[in-house]
């Protein structure tokens, strides 16, 4: 075995110890920075809307709900809403529109007189099915595609954040 000089020994040990210390500090530091990105999973829930028997057939039934989101040390609540449109007596024969305008996210209202959804922000009109009739929105109103009817006859929709 060849002799290792004192100087080289110091160099190598300093390098190794330095590397270990660097990793012991560097890795936690990286985790610390990216932690929120690792956590933010999409939140989902079944949201109760109301009794099916209260929803008139052919007339959009408005609803709204609030979601609370905790971001670090701050909570934000956001309101969401939509309309249930029943086509027939068949409990499953319905669709649920999201009332958030597909243009710039204002909330659309149902106009009973004109039988359209009106967006107050840039005067868009949507048909009762959610198709764009006029105005700037690029696509029809979104739908909550997953819903279920409970044993008590209440409608629930599946909501997923993001």
């Amino acid at each position: 075995m060849s002799e290792v000089s004192r100087r080289d020994f110091i160099k190598v040990t300093t390098g190794i110890v330095g590397g270990i210390i660097g990793a012991a500090i560097g890795l936690p530091a990286v985790y610390y920075l990216i932690d929120p990105a690792l956590r933010a999973g999409a939140k989902e829930a079944w949201i109760p809307i109301g009794k099916l028997e209260n929803m008139e057939i052919g007339k959009p039934y408005p609803f709204s709900f609030t979601r609370v989101q905790v971001n670090g040390w701050e909570r934000t609540s956001t309101s969401r809403g939509g309309f249930v449109v029943r086509n027939s007596e068949d409990p499953d024969d319905l669709f649920v529109l999201n009332s958030t305008c597909t243009h710039l996210a204002c909330t659309v209202n149902w106009s009973e007189n004109d039988q359209v959804f009106l967006c107050p922000c840039h005067d868009a009109k949507f048909s009762p099915q959610g198709e764009v009739l006029s105005g700037p929105p690029p696509r029809p109103l979104d739908r909550f595609t997953e819903f279920r009817i409970t044993d008590e006859g209440a409608l629930e929709i599946f909501y997923k954040e993001g």
């Binding site: 936690p28 530091a29 985790y31 610390y32 932690d35 929120p36 690792l38 670090g72 040390w73 701050e74």
Partner: peptide, 24 residues
């Protein structure tokens, strides 16, 4: 966050919410 509303909570969050926040 250096604001009276959030300073305390943000440090609480560093200590309990963030990976290795207690260490830093």
């Amino acid at each position: 966050t250096p604001s009276p509303d959030h300073a305390y909570d943000s440090i609480q969050y560093i200590m309990e919410g963030v990976a290795y926040g207690w260490l830093i």
